[in-house]
Structures are given as structure tokens and as C-alpha cells.
Design a binder for these strands. Structure first.
Length: 372
DNA sequence: ATGTAC
């Protein structure tokens, strides 16, 4: 028994929006319960892509009367954007396109980056380095083709799309790392520290959004075409929500209409429509399939012989994976992820989402760089 | 997650 002076005492309610059909790591559920006991926590929602994270689980939303930067993490503003490519499938030569996407390695050139940042209202102390680059980990730029759709989102069967998963690169990390350790672990939103963090957080979100757009535009330009934006959804952030602070960690915004649900290089992705009619889901929804196996354990699941590594660069859709970093190729292999179909089935069963389109990967671009 | 800490 204890006394808390910050609103709710005791454990916040935890709602999970998944069934036993979506494989959930018990350690992630332990993390969910643990965070529900943090000071000022009001309500917690876990989604079917739930998996363990560093300070708390990924694939969850947390409503609190305090701000917890560590729940957002270092990659403030990370998200997924989907663009339709103005290029017919028949004009696409896979290997040639894969080669052309190597321009993504360079990022936006400094002069153009400065202009783009200024146009986005981002001036002053702000990182230009890294703008227009994908980054590491689970980030990618994926060329996909629409296999199935009802046409309502302006997509048609056979259309080409770009799904970009990236974030605020060094800029967001610099903001998080610059916080006092005690602030990382939570602070009062009314404090000067709270306001300073929220201002920097807003800049990182804008930076990350711009980054995804520049990646899509650069990729389209390299392929000799242009893009039309469909949606862009942030999944690492904190925003004001019903008089409290809503933290999303690997959870997409369900109050902005459409979001992409990323599959993997070996599984389809979906475009979702979101009714946002279930208050306990905290206006949030899954951002992807979610990890099944952690990075370290993936190394024990792949035999490091040339034939097996080579096989990881070809997908069951006849697609290509461009990843010249051997460790990353293994850690992000298809089997590392849950089945997005199971995640989608749970989301629809709980009334959180309706699929509008199903896309399969043709080129999953990670990096042309060497080993790490 | 990070022009990466140990």
C-alpha cells in the first residue's frame, strides 16, 4: 500500500486487443502490467503486434497524467508512410530498380536538406545530417504492388506503392539523450522541463515526417516517376488526449483515418481504415506484424552459409531484399515477424480496423552498405 | 532506435 499524489492510485486497467491466435511473448505482457503500475498511469492498451521493448513493450498505448519520454523512446516521431507510385507495374524492371534505389544511401544533399527543413518550419538547432536516409534496425523503404483492394482508397490492383518505415534518426536520439536521467523516467507536464520536452518532441515528429517524405520522393525520382501520398502515421509519440497524455510505442494513430499495417519482406502489408469507436483502445492500433523473435535469437535460427544467406535476399513473392549488412539481413528475416494476417484478424474482430488493400513486397530496401 | 556504448 502506498500513497500517490499524482491522480490515480494503484494499477491502471490493462486492455488487450488480441486473441491467442496472435502469438504474444509473455515477457511483453509482463512489461505491459509493470508499466500499468507506474505513477499517474490511467489506462493501458496492448495490440496484437505486442512484443518486448527496452523500457516497456512495443505495440501498446499508455494514457497517463505524467509524461514518460522513455515510453516514446529515442526514435521520436518514427512511423510509416504509404505513397502510390505513378508508374505502371509493367514498366518496372526489378533488378534495375533495386540498383537505382541505392541513391537512398546518400540521403538528401545538405543544401536541399536545409531548404526542406526551413520549408517544414524547422530552423535553428536542428540536425541536417541523416535527413533522407532510412536508418537501421527495422527501418526500410519497400516497393510493393497492390494485390487486392476495394478501390475506396484510390488504389487499384496492380498499382505500385512505397511503404517507408523510418524516424528522426540522430535528431530524436539527441533529444532523448540530452534529457536528465530523472526526466527520461517521467515528469510533470506542467513543469518547465515538460514544456521543453514537448517542444523538442514536436520538432522531432516534424523532422521524421519530412524524412519519410524525402525518402519516398527520392526513391520515386530514382525510378523515373513521382508519388502521390496516401497516409503517414506516427507510432512513437506522446500527445494530449482527453485531459491526459497519450504515449504510443509502436502503436499507430487511429484518429487520422488511414494507416498502413506493415507485414514483413515475406508477408503482405495492409492499408487499414479505422473507425476509432472503441475508447479503451486509446485511439490507437497496431503498426505492423510485430516481432516474434528478438534480434539475438535470430542468429541461432539462420545457418550462416552462403546459400542460406543468399536465399534471404529472395522472397516468396519473387521479390528482392537489398541488405548488404549480414547481421541486419538475419535479424530482419521474414520469420522474425508474426503473421500480419493474424494481427489483422484480431484488429477486425475487436472492431478496430477494416482492410482496404493488401500489398505484397517487390523490393525491400535496407542498405547497400557493408558489414557492421 | 543512434554517423552506436562497452
Amino acid at each position: 500500500m502506498g500513497i500517490s499524489f499524482s491522480g490515480r492510485t494503484g494499477r491502471a486497467p490493462v486492455r488487450h486487443f488480441y486473441t491467442r491466435d496472435s502469438w504474444i511473448d509473455g515477457r511483453a505482457e509482463d512489461q505491459l502490467a509493470q508499466v500499468a503500475g507506474w505513477s499517474g498511469m490511467q489506462s493501458v492498451a496492448g495490440f496484437p503486434d505486442l512484443h518486448p521493448g527496452k523500457f516497456g513493450p512495443v505495440g501498446a498505448a499508455f494514457l497517463a497524467d505524467r509524461i514518460y519520454p522513455q515510453l516514446v523512446g529515442t526514435d521520436i516521431g518514427c512511423g510509416m508512410g504509404l505513397w502510390r507510385l505513378d508508374l505502371p507495374r509493367r514498366k518496372l524492371k526489378l533488378d534495375k530498380a533495386a540498383k537505382r534505389l541505392e541513391v537512398l544511401e546518400r540521403g538528401t544533399d545538405p543544401a536541399q536538406a536545409a531548404d526542406a527543413l526551413a520549408a517544414a518550419g524547422l530552423t535553428g538547432q536542428i540536425g541536417e545530417a541523416g535527413l533522407g536516409t532510412i536508418g537501421g534496425g527495422n527501418h526500410f523503404c519497400e516497393l510493393q504492388t497492390v494485390e487486392e483492394t476495394d478501390g475506396t482508397a484510390g488504389l487499384h490492383k496492380g498499382d505500385l506503392c512505397l511503404l517507408v518505415h523510418s524516424g528522426s534518426r540522430g535528431y530524436g536520439a539527441q533529444i532523448f539523450d540530452g534529457l536528465e536521467d530523472s526526466w527520461k523516467a517521467g515528469f510533470d507536464p506542467q513543469s518547465a522541463a515538460g514544456n521543453a520536452y514537448l517542444a523538442l518532441h514536436a520538432r522531432a515528429v516534424a523532422w521524421a515526417r519530412l524524412n519519410r517524405r524525402l525518402i519516398a520522393e527520392t526513391a520515386a525520382d530514382a525510378l523515373g516517376t513521382t508519388v502521390t501520398p496516401l497516409c503517414d502515421s506516427v507510432h512513437n509519440s506522446v500527445v494530449a488526449h482527453q485531459g491526459h497524455w497519450l504515449h504510443r510505442k509502436g502503436a499507430a494513430e487511429a484518429d487520422r483515418g488511414l494507416v498502413p499495417l506493415a507485414g514483413s519482406r515475406e508477408a503482405p502489408s495492409f492499408l487499414l481504415a479505422l473507425p476509432d469507436t472503441v475508447p479503451e483502445a486509446l485511439s490507437s492500433v497496431s503498426h505492423g506484424a510485430g516481432r516474434r523473435y528478438d534480434r539475438a535469437s535470430m542468429h541461432g535460427r539462420v545457418r550462416k552459409v552462403r546459400s542460406e544467406l543468399e536465399a534471404l535476399t529472395r522472397t516468396r513473392f519473387g521479390g528482392r531484399v537489398i541488405c548488404h549488412d549480414r547481421d541486419l539481413l538475419i535479424e530482419e528475416a521474414g520469420p522474425a515477424y508474426k503473421a500480419p494476417e493474424a494481427v489483422l484478424a484480431d484488429l477486425t474482430a475487436f472492431g478496430l480496423a477494416t482492410p482496404l488493400a493488401r500489398m505484397v513486397p517487390l523490393i525491400t530496401y535496407k542498405t547497400s552498405g557493408g558489414q557492421r
